[in-house]
Design a protein around this nucleic acid. Structure first.
Lengths: 208, 208
DNA sequence: ATATTTACAATCATTCATGTATGTTTGTAT
DNA sequence: ATACAAACATACATGAATGATTGTAAATAT
């Protein structure tokens, strides 16, 4: 029953989508490779062929999604730096729309935030998430520093506090939205939240 | 080896503190009752005497943490308040100080937020957490509604959006602080965040 | 055409956590 | 003094998940 290379890649993808479903339903630790295999229509042998163990399946899932925070920063970098705060605002709102419409990213993101245990001795996948988060924070920090050097950062904010506040609010917004089963309009709430926060960070602008 | 009632209550407490440690280190699903028993200096028999199963140990931990600020909010809802937004701001900042100084609450919070899997078919403990969160949201909503009826809610905010934004920001703040290993000053960042947000919600105030 | 991988399936042994059942000691009520 | 029940410890039975091994049919290289 040897398959061609395309077939193999297909089963690999099917395993990953099945894993996303099972992980989402039962949590990572509550999901056995047997269940994932059944959902994918293969046996555990196939999974062990493509991945070393369950943790590697999880990291593979994580590699698939671009974290929304990264998208924020990418947007800002792409569109120049004449108004860093404005770009952060626009980028954040852009990401809201993207995440609100991409169900697969929602599911994988939900797994990472809600269905995955962050422990003291972190797993490989959890470590990747934390690292990505820290990188995003660093980039946010630099953008806000640019705003500060332009004199557009309100005096009530420090660079670090502003970057943290944005990071926490965005992550909290996504997490709460997913945890609540998308029970509130993400874009609507997020839009007001981002505009208010960034507005309060603007020197001479609102909130100072 | 029958113990007196005080002895029994003591071992129960020791089991709970041990459980908090083990859960924090390994995550909930990664912790066996055997490990918890060893840490507590008892056998699994003792744990099964005091609790039905692991889930009940977790809910017992969750019952322990009750934010003192809830009482303040309850009082305000019952008796009304001349400045609901100010009360929210004050209460939130107070909670920041409390949480920043109570290591046990931090640990239990970290377990609930980071070391516990929220799945589709929720466990008993996870359901309790979600319920508590929803109750908190409801109270926030009522307070903001009071502010709206007094005409102090800025027109850029709706009642629901404002309550959600506050909830998401605060939860995100705590989660990020704990996940980062308390790598940033919680009170400092939180103080600026809360004041900016509530400020933007105040009619005629900052951020409108 | 043959050899050699590839891409799995099937089976097996082992570990590990759980739940339960039972034993044992000691407070406590009478 | 005795009976009973509380507060555990000990032992066992079970099932589930894992990782490893082996089998195998087809694709691909030579």
């Amino acid at each position: 029953m040897r398959r061609t290379k395309e077939d193999a890649a297909k089963t690999r993808e099917e395993v990953l989508t099945a894993a996303a479903e099972i992980f989402y339903e039962n949590g990572v630790s509550g999901s056995s490779l047997e269940k994932i295999a059944q959902r994918a229509g293969v046996t555990r042998g196939a999974i062990y062929w493509h991945f070393k163990d369950k943790a590697e399946v999880l990291t593979a899932l994580h590699r698939e999604i671009r974290l929304p925070q990264e998208a924020i920063v990418d947007y800002a970098i792409e569109h120049g730096h004449d108004d860093p705060l404005g770009l952060i605002e626009q980028g954040a709102i852009e990401v809201l729309h993207i995440l609100a419409n991409d169900e697969h990213q929602q599911r994988v993101f939900a797994i990472m935030i809600l269905g995955c245990e962050f422990t003291e001795h972190l797993s490989d996948a959890a470590q990747r998430i934390i690292t990505a988060n820290e990188e995003m924070f660093g980039k946010l920090q630099k953008l806000i520093e640019m705003a500060d050097q332009q004199g557009t950062l309100a005096s009530r904010w420090t660079i670090n506090a502003a970057a943290r506040a944005l990071q926490c609010s965005m992550n909290g917004l996504f997490a709460e939205w997913l945890r609540s089963g998308k029970s509130f309009p993400l874009v609507d709430v997020g839009d007001r939240l981002v505009r208010s926060l960034v507005g309060s960070m603007r020197h001479g602008g609102a909130g100072n």
